[in-house]
Amino acid sequence: MDLDVLATPGHLISLAARGFARLSEARLKPLGFGVGQLPVLVALQDGRASTQRDLARFAKIEQPPMAQMLARMERDGLIQRAPDPTDGRSSRITLTEVAEARLPDAVAALLRGNHEALRDFTDEEAGLLIALLTRLIANLDRLVSVEASPGTPISEKGD
């Protein structure tokens, strides 16, 4: 079967992701946030992470880009750093009062955008889409970790 590469799930999901990113960026910018900062903001608010290493792991990005993002967020008054009392080499990162005050509006704007994007979907369809995307992401994470493993034979990489 000859499949049009522009009709593949990977391409279509990429287009949807870019559309969501543009919409989210437009709605977050007036609040002083960027769409890439959202995982950091949520992790700090919920207490899921408080160090640069934990935030990078949570957001699934490498340490250098996380360090750059945190530097910009600190410059913009969204986060603050304090020495980690248990590890003198590390800093604890927390949201500033400004970020905490704006975050509920940002989350509401993003949820509203998701709701609007799924306007013609039934609740069941929206739930199924979320479940399928969650499984797809888990599969991709597994594939990427296998591909990144040094010394993994090609036959184990899914080729």
Score class of each variant (00 low, 15 high):
Ala26Tyr: 01
Asp105Met: 13
Leu12Arg: 12
Ser50Ala: 11
Ala16Glu: 05
Leu133Gly: 05
Asp120Ser: 15
Arg48Cys: 02
Gly127Thr: 12
Glu97Lys: 14
Ile137Cys: 00
Thr134Ile: 00
Glu62Gly: 09
Ala126Lys: 06
Leu23Ile: 06
Ile154Gln: 12
Leu136Thr: 00
Pro83Val: 05
Arg102Cys: 12
Leu28Ser: 03
Leu132Lys: 00
Gly34Asn: 06
Val42Arg: 04
Pro9Arg: 05
Thr8Pro: 03
Leu12Glu: 10
Pro150Gly: 03
Ile61Thr: 07
Gln45Pro: 01
Gln63Ala: 13
Glu74Asp: 13
Leu133Phe: 06
Leu41Asn: 00
Asp54Ile: 02
Ala26Gly: 10
Ala56Glu: 02
Lys29Arg: 14
Asp120Val: 12
Val40Gln: 03
Ser91Val: 10
Phe58Gln: 04
Gln37Arg: 06
Glu156Gln: 14
Leu132Pro: 00
Gly10Lys: 02
Ser90His: 15
Ala71Asp: 13
Ala16Arg: 06
Asp4Tyr: 05
Asp159Val: 14
Arg48Pro: 00
Pro64Met: 07
Ala126Pro: 10
Ala43Phe: 02
Phe121Tyr: 15
Arg89Glu: 15
Leu136Phe: 00
Ala56Ile: 01
Gly151Met: 06
Met66Asp: 04
Thr152Phe: 04
Leu23Lys: 08
Ala131Gln: 11
Ser91Trp: 12
Asp159Glu: 14
Thr86His: 15
Met69Val: 09
Thr8His: 04
Asp123Leu: 15
Gly34Ser: 08
Gly151Thr: 10
Thr96Ile: 12
Arg22Pro: 01
Ala117Ser: 14
Leu143Lys: 03
Thr96His: 07
Ala99Leu: 08
Val42Tyr: 01
Arg89Asn: 15
Ala56Tyr: 02
Pro30Ile: 04
Glu100Phe: 05
Asp120Cys: 11
Ala138Tyr: 01
Leu70Ile: 11
Arg102Val: 09
Met66Asn: 04
Ser155Thr: 14
Pro39Tyr: 01
Gln45Gly: 03
Ala43Thr: 01
Leu3Phe: 10
